[in-house]
Protein backbone atom coordinates (compact mmCIF):
# COMPACT_ATOMS: atom_id res chain seq x y z
CA UNK A 1 0.00 0.00 0.00
CA UNK A 2 2.94 2.29 0.40
CA UNK A 3 4.70 3.58 -2.61
CA UNK A 4 8.02 4.03 -0.95
CA UNK A 5 10.32 5.97 -3.17
CA UNK A 6 14.06 6.01 -2.85
CA UNK A 7 13.94 9.19 -0.81
CA UNK A 8 11.47 7.52 1.57
CA UNK A 9 14.02 4.81 2.20
CA UNK A 10 16.56 7.51 2.87
CA UNK A 11 14.21 9.07 5.39
CA UNK A 12 13.72 5.72 7.10
CA UNK A 13 17.46 5.12 7.27
CA UNK A 14 18.00 8.59 8.65
CA UNK A 15 15.47 7.98 11.42
CA UNK A 16 17.14 4.71 12.37
CA UNK A 17 20.48 6.47 12.29
CA UNK A 18 19.22 9.16 14.61
CA UNK A 19 17.22 7.04 17.08
CA UNK A 20 19.30 3.88 17.18
CA UNK A 21 19.33 0.41 15.70
CA UNK A 22 19.26 -1.93 18.68
CA UNK A 23 16.12 -3.84 19.58
CA UNK A 24 15.21 -1.66 22.55
CA UNK A 25 14.69 1.30 20.19
CA UNK A 26 11.75 -0.27 18.34
CA UNK A 27 9.07 1.98 19.83
CA UNK A 28 10.85 5.34 19.39
CA UNK A 29 11.89 4.36 15.85
CA UNK A 30 8.29 3.53 14.92
CA UNK A 31 7.11 6.75 16.60
CA UNK A 32 9.48 8.77 14.42
CA UNK A 33 8.42 6.82 11.32
CA UNK A 34 4.82 7.67 12.09
CA UNK A 35 5.68 11.32 12.64
CA UNK A 36 7.28 11.37 9.20
CA UNK A 37 4.69 9.40 7.20
CA UNK A 38 1.65 9.84 9.48
CA UNK A 39 1.33 6.06 9.56
CA UNK A 40 3.65 3.04 9.49
CA UNK A 41 4.12 1.87 5.91
CA UNK A 42 4.82 -1.87 5.71
CA UNK A 43 7.79 -0.98 3.55
CA UNK A 44 9.26 0.85 6.53
CA UNK A 45 8.99 -2.26 8.69
CA UNK A 46 10.73 -4.28 5.98
CA UNK A 47 13.44 -1.69 5.58
CA UNK A 48 14.15 -1.38 9.31
CA UNK A 49 14.25 -5.17 9.70
CA UNK A 50 16.68 -5.42 6.81
CA UNK A 51 19.03 -2.82 8.20
CA UNK A 52 18.94 -3.34 11.98
CA UNK A 53 18.86 -6.10 14.56
CA UNK A 54 15.09 -5.61 14.89
CA UNK A 55 13.00 -8.26 13.19
CA UNK A 56 9.85 -7.82 11.14
CA UNK A 57 7.89 -9.81 13.70
CA UNK A 58 9.10 -7.62 16.57
CA UNK A 59 8.25 -4.43 14.68
CA UNK A 60 4.90 -5.66 13.46
CA UNK A 61 4.13 -7.01 16.91
CA UNK A 62 4.90 -3.66 18.50
CA UNK A 63 3.06 -1.70 15.80
CA UNK A 64 -0.10 -3.72 16.32
CA UNK A 65 0.08 -3.83 20.12
CA UNK A 66 0.11 -0.12 20.86
CA UNK A 67 -2.92 1.93 19.94
CA UNK A 68 -0.81 4.91 18.86
CA UNK A 69 0.48 3.14 15.75
CA UNK A 70 -1.52 2.88 12.57
CA UNK A 71 -0.80 0.80 9.54
CA UNK A 72 -2.89 2.75 7.05
CA UNK A 73 -2.85 6.42 6.04
CA UNK A 74 -4.96 8.90 7.97
CA UNK A 75 -6.57 12.22 7.25
CA UNK A 76 -4.67 15.47 7.39
CA UNK A 77 -6.30 16.27 10.71
CA UNK A 78 -7.20 13.74 13.35
CA UNK A 79 -10.24 14.52 15.44
CA UNK A 80 -9.99 12.64 18.72
CA UNK A 81 -13.06 12.45 20.88
CA UNK A 82 -12.12 11.74 24.46
CA UNK A 83 -14.06 8.86 25.97
CA UNK A 84 -12.53 9.02 29.45
CA UNK A 85 -14.83 8.50 32.40
CA UNK A 86 -15.62 12.15 32.97
CA UNK A 87 -16.24 12.69 29.26
CA UNK A 88 -18.40 9.57 29.06
CA UNK A 89 -20.50 10.80 31.96
CA UNK A 90 -20.59 14.21 30.31
CA UNK A 91 -21.93 12.92 27.00
CA UNK A 92 -18.96 11.97 24.81
CA UNK A 93 -21.08 9.52 22.84
CA UNK A 94 -23.24 12.40 21.67
CA UNK A 95 -20.14 14.26 20.48
CA UNK A 96 -19.01 11.29 18.41
CA UNK A 97 -22.51 11.05 16.91
CA UNK A 98 -22.59 14.74 16.10
CA UNK A 99 -19.15 14.57 14.47
CA UNK A 100 -20.13 11.47 12.52
CA UNK A 101 -23.12 13.36 11.21
CA UNK A 102 -21.12 16.49 10.44
CA UNK A 103 -18.29 14.66 8.67
CA UNK A 104 -20.40 11.95 7.07
CA UNK A 105 -18.14 9.16 8.33
CA UNK A 106 -18.23 6.63 11.12
CA UNK A 107 -15.95 6.65 14.12
CA UNK A 108 -12.54 5.32 13.08
CA UNK A 109 -12.96 6.35 9.45
CA UNK A 110 -11.36 8.99 7.26
CA UNK A 111 -13.21 11.37 4.99
CA UNK A 112 -12.97 10.66 1.26
CA UNK A 113 -10.93 13.83 0.70
CA UNK A 114 -8.40 12.58 3.31
CA UNK A 115 -8.91 15.71 5.35
CA UNK A 116 -10.25 14.30 8.62
CA UNK A 117 -10.01 11.09 10.59
CA UNK A 118 -12.45 10.60 13.45
CA UNK A 119 -11.20 8.62 16.44
CA UNK A 120 -11.96 7.84 20.06
CA UNK A 121 -9.28 8.07 22.72
CA UNK A 122 -9.26 6.72 26.23
CA UNK A 123 -8.44 9.86 28.19
CA UNK A 124 -6.74 13.13 27.32
CA UNK A 125 -6.32 14.09 30.95
CA UNK A 126 -8.32 17.33 30.83
CA UNK A 127 -11.18 15.81 32.78
CA UNK A 128 -12.25 19.05 34.39
CA UNK A 129 -13.14 20.38 30.94
CA UNK A 130 -15.16 17.32 29.99
CA UNK A 131 -16.35 16.49 27.46
CA UNK A 132 -13.22 17.16 25.44
CA UNK A 133 -12.18 16.82 21.80
CA UNK A 134 -8.70 17.21 20.37
CA UNK A 135 -8.47 18.36 16.77
CA UNK A 136 -4.90 18.17 15.52
CA UNK A 137 -2.88 19.61 18.39
CA UNK A 138 -5.68 21.74 19.75
CA UNK A 139 -7.92 20.77 22.63
CA UNK A 140 -11.49 21.96 22.93
CA UNK A 141 -13.35 21.58 26.23
CA UNK A 142 -16.83 21.89 27.72
CA UNK A 143 -18.43 20.82 24.46
CA UNK A 144 -21.90 19.76 23.49
CA UNK A 145 -23.39 18.46 20.26
CA UNK A 146 -23.77 21.95 18.83
CA UNK A 147 -20.35 23.29 19.79
CA UNK A 148 -18.55 20.21 18.56
CA UNK A 149 -19.81 20.68 15.00
CA UNK A 150 -18.47 24.23 15.15
CA UNK A 151 -14.94 22.88 15.57
CA UNK A 152 -15.16 21.58 12.01
CA UNK A 153 -16.51 24.92 10.84
CA UNK A 154 -13.52 26.56 12.55
CA UNK A 155 -11.11 24.22 10.83
CA UNK A 156 -12.79 24.70 7.48
CA UNK A 157 -12.67 28.46 7.89
CA UNK A 158 -8.91 28.64 7.48
CA UNK A 159 -7.95 27.05 10.78
CA UNK A 160 -4.24 26.40 11.06
CA UNK A 161 -3.12 23.11 9.57
CA UNK A 162 -1.20 20.38 11.31
Amino acid sequence: MCQCEANDLEKIDAIVGRIGADATRAIPVLQEIQKEFHYIPLKAIERIAATTEMTESQLYGVATFYSQFRLSPVGEKIIRVCHGTACHVGGAEGLTEALEARLGIKNGETTADMKYTLESVACLGCCSLAPVVMAGDKTYGKLDRKKVARIIDDLEGGGESR
Binding site: H83, G84, T85, A86, C87, H88, A122, C123, G125, C126, C127, S128
Partner: peptide, 11 residues
Amino acid sequence: DEGDPGAFMDR
Protein backbone atom coordinates in the same frame (compact mmCIF):
# COMPACT_ATOMS: atom_id res chain seq x y z
CA ASP B 1 1.86 6.16 32.23
CA GLU B 2 -1.21 7.65 33.84
CA GLY B 3 -3.79 5.57 32.05
CA ASP B 4 -6.83 5.62 34.33
CA PRO B 5 -9.48 7.58 32.53
CA GLY B 6 -10.49 10.38 34.88
CA ALA B 7 -7.07 10.81 36.47
CA PHE B 8 -4.77 13.70 35.65
CA MET B 9 -2.65 14.24 38.76
CA ASP B 10 0.57 13.03 37.23
CA ARG B 11 0.14 15.11 34.10
